[in-house]
Design a protein around this nucleic acid. Structure first.
Lengths: 204, 204
DNA sequence: CTATATTGGTGAAATAATTCACAAGTGGAG
DNA sequence: CTCCACTTGTGAATTATTTCACCAATATAG
């Protein structure tokens, strides 16, 4: 299927918003309302949805629950996926307890760190392990996603080990770009670059 | 100047990589090497740079320091900018101590939280204040950027107050899209949506 | 000095993405 | 029943972005 990255990202956001509407028992939502919530345009929303061959109802909009279900099916968001966090410094341990992940269908089932010290001090409901058991745990717990929260200089090494252990996707919080085999999905969250982007846009 | 968002983002990453090269005293870098480090193509790098009318040297590449300086000038990255963090929960307080920001020219000069309890318990070198002094501090310290690290339900209210206090740009870590006047630059970092994007790309 | 291998620069071509415009359907008012 | 206001769906037009192909410049080797 040829659906652009931008469309996918927008649709993922729509999915998130539908989740909110569903919890409020809203039955129908128009492309206009979705667009407003997303900060985009109504025709963009309609186009994105129509790419997936999902249709709404004239004069009523899209049925919230069914659209959410359909989007979820097409975008693979209907099943819970297991993830682990590597690197339990300030950021990593904050992510361990970020409840939103669970609510949204991403279950953090393990944390890893190379420092025994950190492992002992950490207070969380989630099991934490030394780096040496990374592969074993990823395999036995069937973890699909790895979240990298280690310093830049270790990011590539961690990515390599995650790949070797068999994760399918990685979310990389380190400011380094990591190189992974092309079948592995990798998304970067580079805080500094986000600030740079803001600075660069300030006087455009 | 009409330079696309994607180009700007790529160039910001190039800027970051040049910083590393400069610290290693590398004198010249080729478009190919830059491309490899960025995970893009050489012609993309050259095109992006040429959009800014910056030129390199045949057979040598680009002079690292001078390219960095030029890019910095064009992208507004050569001066340090002051930022504050609003919301000092797990994530916010982790960000307070994220040294990378300082190294990269973004100085976190204040943290804010509505809970006096949190303010008292927090251990950091950076000054923290109650929400009631948000505007006063932003004005007096000439803070240009706001980093939002509060729960979704408060994000819009915080964004409004930041705008009202006069920040020029915001980095929003909450999973909600916030609406701001169009002259304010706003960038979202939505963790959940990043994971969703990964999931959606898994079987494409 | 000459030949060669590199490397940047860039207009043009190819692709991709967005935006538009409007036909078609339909719930609801009167 | 009729009309109207509203909302989707989508081919077409537009705009933006990426990719290509190749010229020009030049460092280096011999």
């Amino acid at each position: 299927m040829d659906i652009s990255n931008n469309s996918i990202e927008r649709l993922c956001r729509v999915f998130g918003y539908l989740d909110i509407l569903e919890k409020k028992d809203v039955e129908f939502v128009s492309s206009m309302e979705l667009a407003e919530a997303m900060g985009s345009a109504a025709h963009t929303v309609r186009k994105d949805i129509s790419i997936l061959n999902i249709t709404g109802y004239t004069r009523k909009g899209y049925p919230v629950s069914s659209l959410k279900k359909d989007l979820g099916n097409r975008l693979n968001l209907n099943k819970t996926r297991k993830a682990c966090i590597v690197g339990l410094g300030r950021l990593g341990s904050a992510l361990l307890d970020y409840e939103k992940f669970q609510e949204d269908g991403f279950e953090i089932v393990a944390g890893f760190d190379s420092s025994v010290n950190k492992l002992e001090r950490i207070r969380t409901d989630i099991e934490v392990f030394p780096m040496s058991s990374l592969k074993e745990m990823i395999v036995s717990k069937r973890i699909e996603l790895g979240i990298i929260a280690v310093p830049a200089e270790n990011a590539q090494a961690v990515a390599d080990r995650l790949v070797e252990a068999g994760v399918k996707g990685m979310l990389n919080f380190s400011p380094t770009k990591v190189t992974v085999p092309k079948e592995i999905v990798n998304v970067n969250m580079d805080f500094t670059n986000a600030l740079r982007l803001i600075a660069a846009k300030l006087n455009k």
